[in-house]
């Protein structure tokens, strides 16, 4: 095994006295898609926010061998980590193009035109709408813009929080295809999804999270075949 891309060791997050994430450990290899699945409120979003540094979290976080646990969000972005959050967090009153340009803020103006070209090639819809305000986009386009903005920063690890949230099934398929393409282009992806079936189909490795803790982990195809996973996350309860 080579050096893990991301190595999270006993990470915890508390809101007041409530522990939302309890001593979670997680590793991922470069060039892979790793998914964390689990029910609403299991702490998946909290986990991603903690890895990104948005929430204070005791525990170790190493990215490409470097300890980033004391770093601010900005420093983690600089190191090559990038989060596409559940709520997208776009600059809604600014144009699509400005949103993308700001995605390359830390890289400076040199990286912008090249980055724009790459992103527009991947998301032609965004090119059509480049002058439109981000707030006027549809749900699917917003997700594309959020991913496009993230890619402008040339991340080495992309963390996607519920990329399929609120999207029509056809668009969900598009998004997942893009996720697979991104892996092929060398970006590692940490994927959090409600849609466990789709997530397990694209992922190499998977973790199951329940009430703040990792309860299962394994190769994605193994988990997809595990009866416990099937009952809890892939079926409609015990009645199927």
């Amino acid at each position: 095994m080579n050096l893990p891309m991301l190595d999270i060791d006993r990470l915890s997050v508390s809101y007041g006295k409530v522990e939302a994430v309890r001593e979670v450990s997680l590793r991922m290899q470069p060039g892979t898609i790793v998914t964390v699945i689990g029910a609403n409120g299991a702490g998946k979003t909290t986990l991603l926010n903690a890895i990104m540094g948005v929430l204070p979290a005791p525990g170790a976080a190493r990215f490409e061998g470097r300890d980033v646990s004391g770093d601010e969000v900005e420093a983690r972005v600089g190191a090559g980590l990038c989060l596409v959050p559940e709520k997208r967090e776009l600059f809604t009153t600014m144009s699509v193009e400005d949103n993308l340009r700001l995605g390359a803020y830390r890289l400076g103006s040199g990286a912008i035109s090249e980055g724009l070209e790459t992103v527009f090639a991947r998301f032609p819809r965004l090119k059509e709408r480049r002058a439109q305000l981000a707030g006027t986009l549809s749900g699917g386009e917003r997700q594309m813009l959020a991913m496009g903005r993230a890619l402008m920063g040339k991340p080495r690890l992309l963390m996607l929080d519920e990329p399929s949230l609120g999207l029509a099934p056809r668009i969900v398929k598009d998004i997942f295809h893009i996720i697979m393409e991104l892996r092929a282009s060398g970006v590692s992806i940490l994927l959090v999804e409600q849609n466990a079936r789709a997530a397990l189909q694209v992922a190499d490795y998977a973790y199951v999270m329940e009430i703040g803790s990792i309860t299962m982990e394994g190769r994605a195809e193994d988990l997809a075949a595990d009866p416990r996973v099937i009952e809890s996350y892939l079926g409609l309860g015990g009645h199927t």
Binding site: P169, N195, R197, A198, L236, G237
Partner: peptide, 14 residues
């Protein structure tokens, strides 16, 4: 639990 429309909405895969 056996309604095909519901199954598609919930379980639609890749």
């Amino acid at each position: 639990s056996v309604n095909p429309v519901v199954l598609e909405a919930y379980l639609g895969g890749v």
